[in-house]
C-alpha cells in the first residue's frame, strides 16, 4: 500500500504541492487526474523517489521513502516499474535491448532465459518481431508499448504511468488503456496512472483522485467522481474553459 501524507513541495516561490494526501490500495489502479501544470508529474516524481518533499511522508508498504537514500531507496525501487511520459527508451539501444536492459542489469537473468522473457514481454504488448528496430524507427504508440514492456518485464509490484497516452490518437489511447487493464488483470500489480484522458481513463480505474492546485480535492471510484458536486471536478470533467479573470 502507498500512503501519502501532507506532501508539500515548492520550487523557489512557487508552491506546487500543498499538504497533499492520498492512499493507494494494493492491487488497484489509481488514476490521478488534473489540469496540465497542476503538479501531477511532480507528485509522481516524489512517488518514484526522483524528488524529495519539503514536508510530508510517502509510505510504501510501511516505509517512508522520502527519508531513504542510496541503497535503501534502490531496494524499494527494485519493486517499481515506471512508464515515463515520452517512453524514455534508450535511443542507442534496439527495442529488444531496451526491454532486456533491466533484466540484464537489475535481475542478472541468464542469456537463454532473457531472450524468452523479452520476446514474451514484447508479445504481451502486441509487438512481436520489432525487437531489432531502434526507438527512432517505430511510431509513438509503439514506443509507448515498448516502454510498458520494459517497465513490466521484471514483474514489478507497483507500476507508475506518467501520462502514458499523451500525443496519441483516440484509437491508440484506448489500445494503451486496455493494455494496462489487461496486464493489470494478469500480473495484479498496483498501478498509479497520471492522466488527463477524460472520460476514457475512467474505464480502467478502481479509484480516481483529482489533483487541483497542489491538493487532492476529490477521491473515489470513477462513478463517484463523475457524479461529484465539486465544481472544480465537474469543470475539469466537462472540459469547460476558464471564464474568470
Amino acid at each position: 500500500m502507498i500512503k501519502v501524507e501532507g506532501l508539500t513541495k515548492s520550487f523557489g516561490p512557487q508552491k506546487v504541492l500543498r499538504e497533499l494526501s492520498l492512499d493507494v490500495a494494493t492491487g488497484t489502479i489509481t488514476i490521478v487526474i488534473g489540469r496540465s501544470g497542476g503538479g501531477k508529474s511532480v507528485f509522481l516524481k516524489h512517488l518514484i523517489g526522483l524528488f524529495r518533499p519539503d514536508a510530508g511522508r510517502i509510505m510504501v508498504d510501511g516505509v517512508d521513502i522520502s527519508r531513504l537514500r542510496g541503497r535503501d531507496l534502490d531496494e524499494i525501487r527494485r519493486t517499481y516499474g515506471v512508464v515515463f511520459q515520452g517512453g524514455a527508451l534508450f535511443d542507442s539501444m534496439s527495442c529488444f535491448d531496451n526491454v532486456a536492459f533491466p533484466l540484464r542489469e537489475k535481475v542478472r537473468t541468464p542469456p537463454d532465459e532473457l531472450a524468452k522473457r523479452v520476446e514474451a514481454a514484447l508479445a504481451q504488448v502486441g509487438l512481436e518481431g520489432v525487437g531489432a528496430k531502434y526507438p527512432a524507427e517505430i511510431s509513438g504508440g509503439m514506443r509507448k508499448r515498448v516502454a510498458i514492456a520494459r517497465a513490466l518485464v521484471t514483474e514489478p509490484q507497483i507500476v507508475f504511468f506518467d501520462e502514458p497516452t499523451t500525443g496519441l490518437d483516440p484509437v491508440l489511447v484506448n489500445t494503451i488503456h486496455h493494455l494496462i487493464l489487461d496486464l493489470h488483470r494478469r500480473f495484479r500489480f498496483t498501478a498509479v496512472v497520471v492522466s488527463h484522458e477524460i472520460p476514457e481513463i475512467f474505464e480502467i480505474a478502481d479509484t480516481v483522485a483529482m489533483l487541483h492546485e497542489g491538493r487532492i480535492v476529490e477521491v473515489g471510484p470513477p462513478a463517484a467522481i463523475q457524479g461529484s458536486t465539486n465544481p472544480v471536478v465537474q469543470k475539469f470533467i466537462k472540459g469547460e474553459p476558464d471564464t474568470g479573470s
Partner: peptide
C-alpha cells in the same frame, strides 16, 4: 538529450 528525455531518470528508477 538523455536528461531531457528522462532516459537518465529511467536508469535511476531502475535502481541503476
Amino acid at each position: 538529450i538523455m536528461r531531457i528525455t528522462e532516459q537518465i531518470d529511467a536508469l535511476t528508477v531502475m535502481a541503476l
